[in-house]
């Protein structure tokens, strides 16, 4: 077992146990922290696979921005373990069982995957910014441009949903089955 493999197993164990921590911990704040830890270990895997750029982006975007946003929201709502309602044991059990069965089924399905691909140990430079930038702006310029539409709509969404509805006479949509 060389350093590479030791690192792999270390990161794997960390990722899986932290992921379980996200799911199982009662306090939402702990869940967020576990998730951030998971992201760090996944970033570690990225570095193992010579995807340095993504490793950094993962930490900056996910752990740095997205999770902080989550944390803010949770703080804002002042959610803690006492507040959070628990699902009944039965439902939790069903969740574990069905998720586990799905895992086993997929595992069994892919058990004899005939991809005997292996990951070379040698460092490659495809994960460098220079290479990625070239690919992005040569081959993937359309998605790059188009994702602006996505951001525009997300922005509009934040406005539409976040802004308080101005008070003005509107005919409410009445539906007798509403209540």
């Amino acid at each position: 077992m060389d350093l590479f493999e030791i690192l792999f197993w270390l990161l794997t164990i960390m990722a899986i146990s932290c992921a379980l921590g996200v799911v199982l911990s009662r306090n939402p704040v702990n869940s967020v922290l576990f998730l951030i830890a998971t992201f760090f270990s996944i970033s570690g895997h990225y570095i193992l696979m010579n995807a340095q750029f993504l490793a950094i982006v993962n930490i900056i975007v996910y752990a740095g921005a997205i999770m902080v946003l989550f944390l803010f929201v949770i703080m804002l709502m002042n959610l803690n373990a006492d507040v959070e309602p628990q699902k009944s044991r039965l439902v939790q059990f069903a969740g574990i069982i069905s998720g586990g069965i799905l895992f086993l089924v997929i595992l069994a399905a892919l058990r004899d995957a005939r991809t005997h691909g292996t990951l070379e140990r040698e460092a490659t430079d495809i994960g460098l910014i220079k290479n990625l930038g070239k690919t992005l702006f040569q081959n993937y310029v359309l998605p790059f441009e188009i994702s602006s539409v996505l951001f525009l709509s997300a922005m509009i969404g934040a406005i539409v949903i976040g802004k308080k509805e101005s008070v003005h006479p509107v005919v409410s949509e009445r539906n007798p089955h509403q209540n």
């Binding site: 899986i16 996200v22 969740g95």
Partner: peptide
């Protein structure tokens, strides 16, 4: 290192995520 390791790791994380959606009640 065979690719299977990563496939299984990734599927495991994926299924843990699915389990979480099934087990928790908090939308966040």
């Amino acid at each position: 290192m065979p690719i299977q390791y990563y496939i299984f790791l990734s599927i495991a994380l994926f299924c843990i995520g699915i389990m979480g959606t099934l087990m928790r009640r908090n939308a966040i």
